[in-house]
Structures are given as C-alpha cells and as structure tokens.
Nucleic acid binder design. Structure first.
Length: 893
DNA sequence: GCGGACTGCTTACCT
DNA sequence: ACAGGTAAGCAGTCCGCG
C-alpha cells in the first residue's frame, strides 16, 4: 500500500512568500510601517488558496458568523464572513400562533421571524413540529442581560395563554448553543479542515491522496455495518487530512511590581511593562526592553540570534508588541488569558489607546485576538485529560517550569533578585527563556501540541481556541450536538433527559456516589512467575458500541424492548434503533484499535507519518477514556446516569464471565481490575481459547496486553509490581511510587526496584532478598544517624487541594504547614505544592525551609519507611522488623 | 481524663 | 466539572473504664 507523506501536499509545507520572508527579517521601521498599513479586517479575497478553518466567531459589527482561515503558504489569516444569511435561533414547542401573543417577544428588538420545522425528538422517538424562533443577533436569544428570548417565552406565555399551562410544559431547545457553533453545524463547516474560497464561497478542499486513504481505511472495516462504515469514513477523513505548519509566536511579559511577592493585578494594570519577549516560528527572537534610569547594563549576553530592542517609552514598546499580535496567525502564551494579554490590553487602555489599536478582545475568562488565534498553554496543560492521558502524568504542577522540565527538559531561570533589581540582560534572559519554553512546548516532537489541538478541533468540531481551553466533556458534547443537527434531531434539554431516564438502581460501594462501578479482584499475595495480563481494549467504549448504549436507547419507549435487560440492573436497551453515542463512540474506538494504534507502531511507515498517527491515536484515546464518564457527570449536557450505570454493570458482567471461563479452562486468576485479568503461567492454547470464547460470546476482543516475567502482589488491591521480559518494572499503586513521599524513602524504593529488575528466575530471588535487606537496613541506619544529604530529601510534598480557609472539617498536616508559611507572609492558593517535614514538637510538622536537622522526628520516618516497604516485603517473605532487629544486634557488637 | 475503636476527611493512586 | 474503587495517614469523635 502506498503511504503518502504529509509534506507531499505542497501547501502543508510553509514556503515563505515575499511577505512571509519579510517577517523573518529583523525588526525595522520599514517592516513596522508595512504592518501598520495592512488592512483590517483581513477579508478573504474572492478566491483564496487552500486554507485551514482555524477558528469561528461572531462578528457584532456585520452581525455575521465569521470563519478565520489560516493560509499556510503566506502564513496569513483571512476572514470569511457568512454569505448565506444564516441567523441565530432557538426552537420551541409553541406554535407561531401562540408565540405571536407574546408581545415582549414580538417587540423584542432582536426578534426576527418564526419558521415551522419538523424535527426528530429522540426522547419521544418520533417526529415533532417545532417553531424556530429566529433572531437578529445571538444575544437576543440568550444574552447575559435579562429579558432574552429564551427566558421570555416560558415567563410570558402562561400569562397570555387561553388555556392554563405551566412553565414546565413550555419547551425551549438549543438556546444555549454558542452561535458560531450553531453556524458551523448547520453549514457543515469542520474546524481544522481545509477550505478554499471560490467566487467568495467557502468550499471544502478535497485532497486526492487523503481521500484515497480514507477509502482504503473504510475498506478495512468490512465487518462493520454500512452505518458504522459511514462514521468510520467520516472520522478517518478528519484524521487523514494533513496538518499545516503553524506560523506562530510565543509571548511573555514582565511587569514591575512594588511588592515583589505579589503579582500585579492585570485588570488594573497599574505598573510598567518592563520587558516583552517574542519567540517566533519564523526565526524571530526578540526581547523588547523598557529603558529605565535605575537599570544597569548587565555583563551576561543572550545568544547572538536574539535581538534586544530598547524603548524609551512604554507606550511605544506596547505598540511594537501589538504589531506582532496583529500579524501572527497564532500566538502562544502560558496564562495569557489571565495575565499577559489581559495586562497588555488594560495597560494600553490606561495609556488611552483607541479600541481599534488594541489587538486583544478581553473576555471574562479568556483573552482572544482580533486577528489570529490565541492558544493559552496553561489552560491546555491544566486539562486533566491532557495531563493524564496525553502526557501520562509526566508533569505534576501546571507551571511553565514543571511542564517545561517534564516535556522538553527546559526550566525557568531562577531569580535571586526581584524583577525591579535585575540588569537589562538578566531581565531579558529571564523573560526570553519563558517565551522560549512556551514556544518549544508547542514545537517538540514535530509540533505535537499544535497538531494535537488541531486533531481535537476536528474531532470535536470546535475552534482551536475553544478546544484548547475547554474540557473533554465539551469536546464530546460538541460532536454529539453536531450529529443531532446533521440528522435533523432535536437536541434535548438536560432536564428532559433526566426526567425521562434519570434514575439509577444500583448501590455504590463508595458513600455519596450515584451507582456501582467496576470490580477489583482480590489479589493472590506472593511472587508469581510468568504472568499474562489480558485485557479488553477500550472496554467501556466497546460496551457502548456492542450494547447500543445512549440516552435514546436506554429505557426506550418500545414495549417490545423491555425484555432486552442489562445484567444486574432493571434497565433495558432498545433493539430497534441505534443510539448516536453507540455509533459515534463505537466507530471511533474501532478506528483507534484496529487502525491508528497499530499504524502508530508500524516501523515500516515513515517516521513523520508514524508520529502523526501517534498523535491521532492519542487524541482518540483521550476522548474514549472519558466517553463513559461523561454520562455520569452532571455537567455534561447529555447527562444520563443509567447509561453510565449500564456501562459499568456490563463491565462487571463481562469480567466476571472471563474469570469464570478462565477457571473453567484451568487457569489460575491472580488478580483483575475493571477490564483486566492476570493469569498465572497460562499456556498458549489456554490464552487462545479464552480470547476466542470472549470474541464469540461477548462480541468483544480480549488481548494479551503484556507478560510479566514475574509479578509481586501484596494482599492489597491496586497495589502490585511486575517485571517485564525486557527488565522494565511496572509499579502500580505502591506508596514507593507516590509523588508526595520523601525523596529519601523514594530513593531506597527505587534501589529495590532496580534490584528486582535483575531477578530472572526463582533461584535469583535468594541473593536479591539479601540485597534488599541491605537496602532497607542502610536506609534505616542513615535515618537513625540523621545522615541525609539535605532536609529537602525528607520533605513530604502534598498539593493544597483547596484554598486555606476552606479546610474547616479537619486540618491535615500539609494544611498546618501551609498555615505556618502563610504567617510568614507567603501567598498560597489551591493547587500549590506544600513541602513539609515531620518534627518532634507540636504541631509535629514544619515547612521544610524553616526546619533544622535536629528537630526531625526520625521515628516517624522509620514508621513511614516500614509501611512503604511492607507492601513488597511481605510478598517476598521478608519482615521489616527482622531486618531492623539485625541492625540492633550489629550495633551492640 | 485517657486510650482504643471508629468514622470522616484528604490526597494520591488504578482502571 | 468524565466515572467509581482502593490505600493510607491523620483528625476528630465516641465510648468505656471504678
């Protein structure tokens, strides 16, 4: 099969045009002048070469939806305005005749007209007539101000109705969808995909190579139903079209602060912007410095390719920064929404800049750009799903320093002085480094982050700004909404889904939870050689697919479906109509498991394509991982707890059946959690038979995920250690891997881990045990003798989960330490990491920087060492106290 | 008035 | 603002005990 390379598409490679080349030149007056002359808005010409729909928004001036197109050859953004007279609307079950009686509606300045439409109601399972209430602008439908159309209808109609009617009977649908989203659903515009402007119309650009691939992929799914194939094709198209090179600049600003520990308030913007760094993908590396009398020139230099520009007025400096913000299609910041861009915008306002001179649109929670697309990496990396599933928890604090260190091995420059006391070059270096880290966070591994955002924008149908800021439940909601519109289905209100399908029936094990979750099998303690771990790839998405789960299909209105019961629940599921979720999630799962995952590991493919496939499969993984949970999340627009409950129940049922079958086949099951079984020394035939049986009986695949040379189980669930064939060690749940424990203990644990990795046979264990004894004893003795390198090795590092005042029920140790820090004048907020050591004196804890060697409560640390090692020692037949006892003897001798 | 048993809170982890 | 299940340590409470 012929594989195409991404760069075979000529426009995918940025070939600098004359204009783009000018961008790469050092900053000159001429360049500045040319930029100032650039027209705004940059309206797309009658005919525009292939461009990416990077963003969508509503333009208040023209009252039109607006698509921001990124043309990668020139590296410019072009605006394409709607030319189809599309208008904002919502839907209601009242007739135009009834609605006409509502004076406040008819006289609303934003009201336009009514239309009668027929839609499929997924809760009633039939077509219904509805009235489309069309407005002149989006705020008329549902603005923040009171008195918008969506509120007027249920408020006023009971007053004017001839027959009594309660507000609950009056339905208003789809009034909370953002207008530009509504627009791109209705006009079938796919964010992140490629379009041309032809005769002023926006036309999708078909790429022959990509289409060939899409067809090829579809043909690989012969067993799927034609409906499923259609969806597989739709997803594959979104994923196969190439990504552009993103011309972009990373920006970071430094502001003078009279109180060095306090961040200046970006809403007041009361203090000077003293330095701004710009790090561009086009090679421009600029540091803009404000000349100040008190500052000396430093002796350190920045590298030769960085230009230092000095400004005698702050206003001019800000204008120079704004020039960049008017010209780059993508702007990268770390926390720009809440600081950098917000500060610059307000500072400019304070200077009296005209509105049209400021390139920033200040929102309540975000700061967007009038010209290009602003990506705030803080928001992106803060996203839990991104943190856990896309980056495997490699960073822990969402700070530029920690994310930079974890992902690209770059740290912030540590300052020993306050911003106000730095020399020019110290300041420049510090500020420039931040911009450099921010930029490189988007460029490492072939622009992984930019491409990931692009892929997610395509899957979720969201502008790049939104997808990079919002959570996974919004991504899923949006592609669900899009499909409702595409199929002419009414998008139900959350309250109506809940009223018809809201009840759960199982009892959760954890107090306060809504329903029962997964099964964890009691482990068989001890050391076991040759352990095969078999699991269901994407169990819950598979269940959603195979069992046709969705809010429509669960507890459907058909009497004949009532016997199609879900095990362990009173719920039944529809046998007649395929649920949207089942199709969308199921097809996405199949595509990942059967296509993108294997392709991302296929060494015969070119490296560049492989890395693109890696990004794709990672993006799908993030979405699939959340696809079950969202149904149990109240915040999700299609919240439907019985769907989540059913999914978990089928999961329990499936794994229970596997365990029974395994036993029946004579395989010992050592452990299992949710979707996995750990099998002791199974034969090839046994594995094959179990997989065959599962495929046949459960209609789901069961794979060998990995084989441990040996695994060590304690008696605790979610706690084990496994050594793979290649000698790498999986540690799961053990205290020794938890990130809050003192480094001192962690180091000893890691030594033990390394030693265990060397064990190949049961016989090897004997010497290994002796060495492990030694490791534990050594650690114990060093603690007793207070021989540690520094106190920070003894620090527990615990995240402050809440604001300090919020701890009212109890005062945990890290909060006690935090309170001591606060007394010393430290500013602390939720999310901060507290480092403390355990000391003898009340309150038994102290922030690490305030403690001294002799006040350490050594016995507490020994107790902690004990419990940490016990998790492994008891499985190895070793005893902590015996190890320590030996030591006592030795010390006597 | 004290200590052990117990519950609840909090964090970090697993799938 | 995806879910529930598990481990661990500590804070706080209750109850019995002449």
């Amino acid at each position: 099969m012929a594989q195409r390379r991404l760069d075979e598409f000529s426009y995918a490679e940025a070939k600098p045009s004359e204009k783009a080349r000018a961008e790469a030149l050092p900053f000159t007056e001429a360049v500045a002048k040319e930029r100032k002359q650039r027209a705004f808005p940059p309206i797309a010409p009658e005919n525009l070469p292939p461009s990416y729909s990077a963003s969508a928004t509503y333009d208040g001036k023209t009252r039109k939806a607006l698509i921001k197109l990124y043309e990668p050859t020139s590296g410019q953004i072009y605006f394409w305005y709607d030319n189809t007279e599309h208008k904002p609307y919502c839907l209601t079950n009242l007739s135009p005749y009834e609605l006409e009686k509502i004076n406040r509606l008819i006289q609303h300045p934003g009201f336009d007209h009514f239309e009668i439409v027929e839609k499929f109601d997924p809760l009633l399972n039939r077509n219904v007539k509805a009235t489309k209430v069309v407005a002149k602008d989006p705020l008329a439908i549902g603005g923040r101000a009171r008195g918008c159309i969506r509120d007027i209808i249920p408020e006023e109609f009971p007053k004017v109705s001839e027959t009594p009617i309660s507000p609950e009977e009056i339905k208003v649908w789809e009034s909370k969808i953002r207008y530009y989203q509504s627009y791109i659903y209705d006009r079938n515009i796919w964010p992140g995909m490629i379009y041309e402007v032809k005769n002023a119309n926006l036309v999708p650009k078909a790429l022959e190579e990509a289409e060939k691939m899409v067809k090829h992929i579809r043909e690989n799914f012969k067993d799927a139903t034609s409906e499923e194939q259609q969806y597989i094709e739709q997803w594959a198209r979104l994923l196969e079209y190439p990504a552009p090179k993103f011309r972009r600049v990373a920006l970071d600003i430094e502001v003078y602060s009279p109180i060095p520990t306090r961040m200046p308030d970006p809403r007041e913007a009361a203090y000077q912007v003293v330095c701004v760094s710009l790090y561009g993908s086009d090679g421009q590396k600029r540091v803009l410095l404000l000349k100040r009398e008190e500052v000396r020139e430093g002796t350190e230099r920045l590298s030769a390719d960085v230009t230092l520009e000095y400004f005698d007025s702050e206003e001019k400096l800000i204008r120079a920064v704004f020039d960049a913000l008017w010209s780059y299609p993508f702007v990268i910041t770390f926390n720009g929404d809440d600081f950098d861009l917000r500060y610059l915008a307000h500072r400019a306002q304070n200077f009296g800049f005209r509105r049209d001179e400021i390139p920033i649109e200040i929102g309540r929670r975000v700061c967007l750009l009038k010209y290009g697309v602003h990506i705030d990496l803080y928001k992106f990396f803060f996203n839990r799903s991104i943190q856990i599933y896309a980056f495997n928890n490699r960073y822990r604090d969402v700070t530029l320093d920690d994310v930079g260190r974890a992902l690209i091995g770059m740290e912030k420059i540590r300052l020993e002085k306050n911003i106000g006391e730095l020399t020019y070059t110290e300041l420049a270096k510090y500020c420039f480094r931040d911009a450099e880290i921010a930029f490189k966070l988007t460029s490492f591994e072939d622009d992984l982050v930019m491409n990931l955002i692009l892929v997610l924008a395509r899957i979720s149908n969201m502008p790049m700004e939104d997808v990079s800021r919002q959570g996974v439940s919004r991504w899923i909601r949006n592609f669900m909404h899009r499909e409702h519109r595409r199929r002419n289905m009414l998008i139900p209100n959350a309250t109506d889904i809940q009223a018809t399908k809201g009840k759960t029936a199982t009892k959760a094990i954890i107090k306060g939870k809504k329903y029962k979750g997964a099964i964890v099998v009691e482990p068989v303690p001890g050391v076991h050689f040759n352990v095969a771990v078999m699991d269901f790839p994407s169990l819950y998405p598979s269940i959603i697919k195979v069992w046709n789960l969705g809010y429509q299909s669960i507890v459907c209105p058909h009497p004949e479906c009532r016997s199609n019961l879900i095990p362990d629940t009173p719920h039944w599921v529809c046998t007649e109509k395929r649920a949207l979720e089942s199709l969308l999630i199921g097809s996405l799962r199949d595509l990942r498991v059967q296509w993108y995952k294997p392709k991302s590991k296929d060494k015969t493919l070119p490296a560049e394509l492989r890395s693109w496939y890696k990004i794709i499969q990672g993006a799908i993984k993030v979405i699939l991982n959340a696809s079950y949970g969202v149904f149990g999340a109240e915040s999700f627009d299609l919240y439907c707890p019985p769907v989540a409950e059913a999914t978990a129940a089928i999961g329990r049922h499936s794994i229970t059946q596997i365990i029974n079958k395994a036993k029946q086949l004579g395989i010992q099951v050592l452990y299992g959690d949710t979707d996995s079984v750990f099998l002791k020394n199974p034969s090839k035939e046994q594995i094959k038979e179990l997989a065959r049986w599962t495929e046949h009986e459960l209609k789901m695949s069961l794979d060998v995920d990995k084989v441990y040379r040996y695994a060590v189980f304690s008696s605790r669930k979610k706690n084990y250690l496994g050594v793979l064939e290649d000698g790498s060690v999986d540690v799961k749940g053990l205290t020794g891997k938890k990130r809050h424990i003192p480094l001192f203990i962690k180091k000893a644990f890691d030594r033990m881990k390394e030693r265990l990795a060397m064990v190949k046979t049961p016989a090897d264990f004997e010497t290994a045990k002796k060495d492990i004894n030694e490791i534990v004893r050594d650690c114990y003795i060093r603690l007793k003798r207070r021989e540690w390198e520094s106190l920070s090795e003894l620090a527990f590092n615990v995240v402050l989960g809440e604001e300090l005042e919020h701890y009212t029920k109890t005062t945990p140790q890290h909060v006690k330490a935090a309170k001591i820090l606060k007394e010393g004048g430290m500013e602390l907020k939720a999310g901060d990491l507290i480092s403390f050591v355990k000391v003898i004196k009340e309150p038994r804890v102290k922030p690490v920087e305030l403690a001294t060697k002799n006040e350490i409560d050594v016995d507490k640390y020994i107790a902690y060492l004990h419990s940490t090692f016990d998790q492994v020692l008891d499985a190895l037949g070793l005893d902590f106290n015996e190890i320590i006892g030996l030591t006592k003897l030795e010390r006597f001798m």
